[in-house]
Write a protein that binds this DNA or RNA. Sequence first.
DNA 1: CATTTTGTTTTGAGTAAATCAAAACAATTC
DNA 2: GAATTGTTTTGATTTACTCAAAACAAAATG
Lengths: 159, 159
Amino acid sequence: MTISNLSDGEGLRLAAADAGLLEGGIRSAGLKVTAPRLAVLRALTDRPHSTADALFGVVRADLPGTSLQAVYGVLASFTSAGLVRKIEPAGSPALFERRVGDNHHHIVCTHCGVVHDVDCAVGHAPCLTPADALGFDVRAAEVIYWGLCAQCQAESALP
Amino acid sequence: MTISNLSDGEGLRLAAADAGLLEGGIRSAGLKVTAPRLAVLRALTDRPHSTADALFGVVRADLPGTSLQAVYGVLASFTSAGLVRKIEPAGSPALFERRVGDNHHHIVCTHCGVVHDVDCAVGHAPCLTPADALGFDVRAAEVIYWGLCAQCQAESALP
DNA sequence: CATTTTGTTTTGAGTAAATCAAAACAATTC
DNA sequence: GAATTGTTTTGATTTACTCAAAACAAAATG
């Protein structure tokens, strides 16, 4: 599979527009630019908080030869290169997003599973300092809010 | 397997002392009191932040006939009865603890995986209010701090 | 431009953690 | 003590993910 069959038909113009940005991001992370990587990164741009499997579904539409393992491989390399962030909410397969480098958190619907980004709670870097760090050298604080999303609240209020 | 072969030998006195408390806890959660449930609850008292598998290892020493699935079943019933809390740190199998009902969080060592409880960060119920809840009815905030524990810091500083 | 090197993807197998279902069984209720 | 209800065992199954070797493509090099 070569980069030249990356896109076809109506996706071509969009792909051409994005390609530079996506490609630059991958390249400047010190990774080789390949068709599966471009496809995964594009899919993730459109659909943040996706599972590997969901991304595989999107990617294989663009690039039919792509394997699920390739998607896992791409995501692993992106994650360790700091190009994407992996989140693992309880009870869910891992989710991935392109928004990295800021200290943002997530809010997850306990009913439908939808995930949204939320900015940090209190002031500058809230929750980044535990009451007592017990001698740990704390590097990160991960916050997940759980609750009912607006739509599921509305649905649960129906007769 | 009956409750009568719950313990033997030197564990008997301790078991007798605990049995009332453990039994009362299970019963008042509306669950039947069984040998596997007592054994799991006792194991969890001694070793908070254990996996189902680790608890299975402890329980089968007391109660050799116990199956791993029984341990999963016991933990599921305890969790939904509010008798234990299940935590699922990224990259780890689920951990269980008896400390419930308070809003405490966890600090996990990125190197050795050890988990400790930490009280809430700032004031009363910090992090319980996101900057913007996006219409969600927020019910819980889960905070996990990641860092190097004191021992792993010491070991990484060696020649 | 051709070649080599390095890194990526495919193919296929394998694993860990957890779940499901039916039959056997035990705790509580009556 | 019998009936009822809930729990545990047994055994199979699933999901999410990982590993390894061979095939292959991208980038570096001459």
